[in-house]
Amino acid sequence: MKRKREQIIPYLLLTPVHFVLLVVVGLPTLYILWLSLNTSTWGTSLQFVGLENYRQLFTDPYFWRATLNTFLVVIGVVYIEMVLGLLLATFFIKGVLAKKLMFPVILMPYAISPVVGVLIWKTLMDPNIGIVARLLSMITHSNVNYCVSPSQSLVLIGFINLWLHLPFTFILLYSGMLSISETIYEAARIDGADSFQIYFRITLPLLTQTMLITIIFRLVFAFRLFSEVWLLTRGGPIRKTEVMAVYLYQHAFRYGNFGIAAATGWLMVIGSLLIASLYLYQMQNRMSTKE
């Protein structure tokens, strides 16, 4: 009897967490799925339309442009961030000058509110008074004006996202490198391995799990990309820098078109899961083969 009670207690303790998850995540998710199969707006009841909202999305060129922009920025940012994060973590492990000073410097962007960060960059890149924009114009002998050039806008959006989140990637990879036992490195050195071999044959393979976790986190975070775009361009000029979250926002809170917004939300979830799982699967395979 006592044993049975002891077996039940852990489940009882876990019940509130599961209940909260069900209420704040599970039920709203299912409701959004249901909403995506209906048309509705403010003050009207739901009208079931099946997959019509999805059909409308798939035939809307603005949705495809937003999707393409999202993928371009997300993939670009996450991969560049991984490379930079790895380089930074390696420098710190190897020993960098004034480490105690450099550490907070590297982490600083993560401590800044994203809104403030974007507004700072917006000022720096202002084509009229922005010191960075003017400097770049001088160096490149061309007109650096993200306000009218969609490609420049997307690059700037990606750069700000990378700047804001690089500390997160760095800290995960750095702690992953710190957790690799020194004895493994000692053994490698005794066996005659050089620094290059140690890095590519020991550090990177043993860091695979940390890298996978970092990638999945960053992919999911990056997929929700919104504030950088909204504060910098609001999806302009001429709607050419819209990303999926901005597209969703416009339909939900500007046009009151909840069915389309809910369908976009679901496609974002599916997209981020798909892209994350694809990359994780491929990467894990590659790393396993190398090992």
Binding site: Y146, L232, P237
Partner: peptide, 21 residues
């Protein structure tokens, strides 16, 4: 008209007129 025509906000406008830009 400002070269950041497509993104200029009310805050930018206020700053420009009050500073003589």
């Amino acid at each position: 008209v400002p070269s950041n025509f497509a993104t200029i906000t009310i805050d930018d406008q206020n700053a420009m007129i009050t500073t003589g830009r």
